[in-house]
Nucleic acid binder design. Sequence first.
DNA 1: CGTATTTTTATCGTTTTTTTTCGTTTTATC
DNA 2: GATAAAACGAAAAAAAACGATAAAAATACG
Lengths: 255, 255
Amino acid sequence: MATLRKNDILTLLRAEGKATVDFLADHFGVTVQTVRRDLTELEQEGHVSRVHGGATLRGGVTNIQYDHRRELHAAEKEQIGRLVAAYIPSNTSLFINIGTTTEAVARALLDHENLTVVTNNMNVANILAGNSNCEVIVSGGTLRRTDGGLVGDLATQMIEQFKVDIAIIGASALDEDGDMLDFDLREVGVSRSIIRHARRVFLATDGSKFERTAPVRIASLADVDAVFIDQPMPGDLAQRCLEWGTSVHIVGQHY
Amino acid sequence: MATLRKNDILTLLRAEGKATVDFLADHFGVTVQTVRRDLTELEQEGHVSRVHGGATLRGGVTNIQYDHRRELHAAEKEQIGRLVAAYIPSNTSLFINIGTTTEAVARALLDHENLTVVTNNMNVANILAGNSNCEVIVSGGTLRRTDGGLVGDLATQMIEQFKVDIAIIGASALDEDGDMLDFDLREVGVSRSIIRHARRVFLATDGSKFERTAPVRIASLADVDAVFIDQPMPGDLAQRCLEWGTSVHIVGQHY
DNA sequence: CGTATTTTTATCGTTTTTTTTCGTTTTATC
DNA sequence: GATAAAACGAAAAAAAACGATAAAAATACG
């Protein structure tokens, strides 16, 4: 239910960015319980983020969605990261794309020697800055705050100036036909460009991506050389990957 | 768990670069243990780097030499940063170049509205990621670990695709003839390109740079529109700037 | 005016956060 | 390299914030 007070709370939050429950209760001359109810409702409506003791405007300083996304399946991602890293030799040039799983790969690459890494992911650049045996080349682009990605034409343009040994990409979703999907058209442009400018393409993803969907098609699993995943693929996709010549590497399974 | 205080700590760190546990405890009126827990959590969330006695903003390049350089004349740099920020209106497009003083400017810009900032400095990008009113465009380039700079042809190439209202540059050294100097030839190329592709050029520097020297000449003070500095310039340089039409703004002196 | 509905407040047990208190580790100084 | 001071983490106690529910107040409506 919309009330005058809830609107006022929103305007106040827009001005201040944040407010405590006590302050709001005092300011509107109501009890804290009333304020709490207001804030709970505003949170459910997606307008504010509730924190202990108060609330902040949604989309403010902290990025809840990304933090949450990074925590999701964190253990699996670390395993996938290590698995991919095992297939990356020293003295190699790499693309590393946007995504929490690709960041896990970057972390697993901290001990590798003599890598040249091109990335459009600020987090990957920050991580690999810690490996002094690794030359880090950052692609240009517009900084997307939600995930540290560099996107847009500038990123694509820049990537086209390289040709690397291996590209490591992620995907927001996968479907059982073997298509890789994403949400942001601008990012898909970058991903396609990365695939074109790499000799081999590795997809790093966790199995939960099969349970999600996204509107834009990046490419087919037929276009990648290897898939690294934490659980077997659904349906007959494993068989089709075999036909496509796409090797599938599953965490914990050694050949 | 997100709290109001943890968000505030983050904004404070973005503005200051670093903070001690004692200062934060005093500032928020809580005990040091509470601050410690906050910082530990923020570290686990990947937002800050914990150091003995306090914390620093994460993301960035952690380099002892660079950290030391950043602490050098830190107070002066903050003042210069605020001074420059006062001359930057809202709704403006900016270049921000490599350098500890330019980073201080970025920190002072956290409250500005509607900026478009192009930068080849990873630290600046990380700082301004905290200002959601600001579009951040990162130039491509090879990551230089010593200072988070993006250098090389790629950076130059990318900068040439822009034309901004104001460029904010620094310099490693200045001489009494009014020449700006630097150490790295690759960086000088970028600086020159930035000067060419901005309508106005601001030099932000501290007076100690007159006591240092460097091998490569970037340009003359005659090529910049305004100098922001913490102390009067030596010799007859102030007079010559007047002849060149280069305005000089000194911290603490109001006109 | 009286009743029904919504909104707010009061109460209480539960959860979360903060502080207190300890021994341990790190850093600074001689 | 020894010693003192500062900073640290862990655990228990205290305080604050929380959600749920029922009572009270305000509002709506015939």
